[in-house]
């Protein structure tokens, strides 16, 4: 595929998905900061009096940090992660994707599965336990995932697409319903 047709296809796809923002590249702190500053002003222009802008922004940041936390930094291609934020009449959807080491998957999957099973009340209890626990080597202790689940109010969807013997592509989707 030529670059022109690839760009066109990406554009068609993103417009169809009503993308507010899509980014594919290296998620370094500066790129993320610029991205977030931009999306923050976009969101606050859309959601003037609903407070939704802050919720979406907050979930978005946790999703991005989740990418950074679990990204496998291999070759140049493997450093490229992706982020998509789209909006429909009823919800905002955030999808992230990044390369991950296969040996990291079982523990992460377990966390995601645990969070997916919990009710809103149980999620809050788990949040409490995690926030009050002493910092460990795993400096975030899954608080991000719990936070995403609480704030989005919807079940997190995820997928691991095996790429090589050692790596996979980790996709995470979260939806935030728009308050009526």
């Amino acid at each position: 595929m030529t670059y022109i047709s690839a760009a066109f296809e990406a554009h068609q796809l993103m417009s169809e998905k009503r993308s507010l923002m899509s980014f594919t590249g290296h998620f370094d702190h500066l790129a993320i900061t610029l991205l977030l500053t931009n999306i923050k002003s976009k969101l606050s222009a859309i959601e003037i009096t609903t407070g939704m802008d802050k919720r979406v922004y907050s979930v978005l940041v946790e999703c991005i940090e989740n990418v950074c936390k679990h990204s496998f930094h291999g070759n140049e291609k493997e450093n490229i992660a992706t982020l998509l934020l789209s909006k429909s009449e009823t919800k905002y959807t955030i999808v992230t994707g990044n390369h991950i080491m296969n040996d990291e998957i079982p523990a992460l999957k377990e966390k995601l599965e645990t969070v997916a099973k919990l009710s809103p009340v149980e999620l809050k209890q788990m949040y409490r336990v995690q926030i009050l626990s002493k910092p460990t080597n795993d400096n975030n202790a899954g608080l991000g995932i719990i936070d995403i689940a609480i704030k989005s109010g919807n079940k997190i969807k995820y997928e691991f697409k095996k790429l090589t013997k050692n790596t996979s592509f980790y996709l995470l989707q979260t939806e935030i319903s728009i308050k009526k």
Binding site: S58, E65, I131, P135, N140, G144, D147
Partner: peptide
């Protein structure tokens, strides 16, 4: 605070 991430939340706690 206008906003804080989950890692900051732990320290605020």
């Amino acid at each position: 605070l206008e906003y804080f991430n989950s890692t900051s939340a732990k320290h605020i706690a």
